[in-house]
Design a protein around this nucleic acid. Sequence first.
DNA 1: GATTTGAGAATAGTATACACTTTGTATTTT
DNA 2: AAAATACAAAGTGTATACTATTCTCAAATC
Lengths: 239, 239
Amino acid sequence: MATTTAQDVQDPARTRGSGTQTVYATIRQEILAMTLEPGSPLDEVKLSERFGMSRTPVREALLRLSADGLTTTLPNRNTIVAAIDFAALPAYFEALTLMYRVTTRGAAGRRSAGPARDIRTRQDEFARAVDAQDAYAMIEANREFHVAIAERAGNAYYTTFFSRLLDEGRRILRLYYSTFDDRLPRQYVEEHEDMIMAIEAGDVERADTLALAHAAQIVAQIQEYLARDATNARDIQNI
Amino acid sequence: MATTTAQDVQDPARTRGSGTQTVYATIRQEILAMTLEPGSPLDEVKLSERFGMSRTPVREALLRLSADGLTTTLPNRNTIVAAIDFAALPAYFEALTLMYRVTTRGAAGRRSAGPARDIRTRQDEFARAVDAQDAYAMIEANREFHVAIAERAGNAYYTTFFSRLLDEGRRILRLYYSTFDDRLPRQYVEEHEDMIMAIEAGDVERADTLALAHAAQIVAQIQEYLARDATNARDIQNI
DNA sequence: GATTTGAGAATAGTATACACTTTGTATTTT
DNA sequence: AAAATACAAAGTGTATACTATTCTCAAATC
């Protein structure tokens, strides 16, 4: 409910065609950042008032969000922010691990592509976020780091699917990163460094091993957090 | 241009909420079946006349199709059926092969799920289509066969991604299957049989080997077809 | 003759109005 | 008092009207 009364009203003469895009990008961001919690109602009229436009572009934005799986449309009722499906987490981890491996392998197989400049940039951003202990920036930079690897691998199908997975994970990570002690992010920085080295050396097998270990590391941490949290949640639930 | 003047007009009092769905499903089908060729313009007004409804539900259907990557929206111009990106084919084949393997492996790992009834059903449909030499039915049944395997594997992320890949491939297959001689589909039937046996036996490694061979088989055939076709196309192009 | 400019047509983007469904509540009935 | 029915409110689904953009084609200019 952070921005209930906030008015994101644009200058009334915004460029034609930007309406849907603006609403889509803004709400998507808010959902992924958990500003809008799962289950929150998204009322077309209220949103149109907030953004200072008619219902039509708002509706189209909600449609796109639904296609992304970020919202759930209840027919003839309203749209709500999609729930996080904790039951699907094992499947999620499996898919995430696979894509970590495939993309990192693929990137290493592209040795001829030269130095991994983009990946390097993202890694630096990640390291800065870790130094600043900015959990949100870490999540963003981590996502961009791995997407950059996927892009170097050069398979658009993988990049698209992987991006979706990483986005979906942002909401879970958002819960998780806040509980970090300082040790793990630094370890991730080092693991990222190793991955870059393997990629630039064109060492496919080592890249694969590192990706697998990295994924296992993250999965284990999240699972541990969730186990801890489940106990807390049970205690807190019935106040 | 097959259905230019066809009127898909529904009974004017169709159920509320079905409009977008109807248009989406119909056009999607027509795109995948190549009734609507890549590059064909999709005019909102013409479509609304054809389906006997206003532009709004048509627009929303086109939006969903764009989200699926089946259409391309040219801002302030019109929407066209997405082109088949032949340059992306190697990446496509790689992703397809990976998903064949992962889903078949996953299905075999679910031995406890009992007999693979759904998969069996799809296989029978595929065999019937082969007997009838009905290329279109073959493509459909083949897709459903592999989706059934993915569903048994039980990872919704894989199922979704794989379904998308198979759909995208339907348009290519549609070009390809028409040139089939009789031998290959029968071979696919046998390969499918072997996969079912491996899955029911819970033999993960054999399932993987079979999936890989099956994928390689299909990829090789399509590539051969495309190589042939490229020569033809060059000859035909400049009449 | 080629190129630029401008009017008009076509078509997408947006706003608004209306109708239908669902849901919750109050009133009636048993 | 419990259940059923009717009614009102909220909010979506669809239709339609309006506006801005882009393209086309022709006329004017260089």
